[in-house]
Amino acid sequence: MTTLTIPLTREKLVRYAGASGDFNPIHYSDHFARKLGQESVIGHGMLTMGLAMRLVTDFAAPEKVRSCRFRFKRPVPVPDDAEGAALHLELEASDPDDMGVITCSLTARVGDDVVGSGKAEVVA
């Protein structure tokens, strides 16, 4: 199993919003997030998935990635402090099948909560 922990801070959310064009206020305004029932600002789901895919592209070259799918299970609350939220990512790879395809299982956690999971297929 391969693991990676990435701190998700408000600064990272702002940078991702600028890069992606996703300026939904739930990602930067505690006031707006609370109005929608969240305890605080939440991270972008696609940012969580993209960071999880970093494990896959570290495992195999990007051009070897055949497919990926990811399911968002819970929002990622990002506190307004220097540490933010610790996003713990895990990758477990299968042995290559008869076609030379390796299945990578991905899990994203914040604390004990699974916030997302997915699978990616890479060519050996």
Score class of each variant (00 low, 15 high):
Gly18Ile: 02
Gly18Thr: 01
Ser20Cys: 05
Ser20Glu: 10
Asn24His: 11
Ile26Trp: 05
Ile26Gln: 05
His27Cys: 03
Tyr28Asp: 11
Tyr28Gly: 06
Tyr28Arg: 03
Ser29Ala: 02
Phe32Pro: 06
Ala33Arg: 13
Lys35Gln: 15
Lys35Arg: 15
Leu36Asn: 13
Gly37Lys: 13
Gln38Phe: 15
Glu39Tyr: 04
Glu39Thr: 11
Val41Gly: 04
Ile42Ala: 02
His44Gln: 12
Met46Cys: 06
Met46Ser: 05
Met46Asp: 03
Met46Asn: 05
Met46His: 08
Thr48Pro: 09
Gly50Val: 01
Leu51Val: 00
Leu51Gly: 02
Leu51Gln: 10
Leu51Phe: 11
Ala52Val: 00
Ala52Ser: 15
Met53Tyr: 09
Leu55Val: 00
Leu55Met: 10
Val56Arg: 12
Thr57Gly: 03
Asp58Val: 00
Asp58Phe: 05
Asp58Arg: 11
Ala60Thr: 00
Glu63Met: 05
Lys64Phe: 06
Lys64Cys: 06
Lys64Pro: 04
Val65Gly: 05
Arg66Ile: 01
Arg66Trp: 08
Arg69Gln: 13
Arg71Ala: 08
Arg71Ile: 01
Lys73Asp: 09
Arg74Phe: 09
Arg74His: 15
Pro75Arg: 13
Pro75Val: 01
Val76Ile: 04
Pro77Trp: 08
Ala82Asn: 03
Ala82Ser: 10
Gly84Tyr: 09
Gly84Glu: 08
Gly84Lys: 05
Ala86Ser: 13
Leu87Met: 07
Leu87Arg: 10
Leu87Tyr: 07
Leu89Glu: 06
Glu90Lys: 12
Leu91Ala: 09
Leu91Glu: 11
Ala93Thr: 00
Ser94Trp: 12
Asp95Ile: 01
Pro96Tyr: 13
Met99Arg: 15
Met99Trp: 06
Gly100Met: 11
Ser105Val: 00
Leu106Trp: 06
Thr107Gln: 12
Ala108Gly: 06
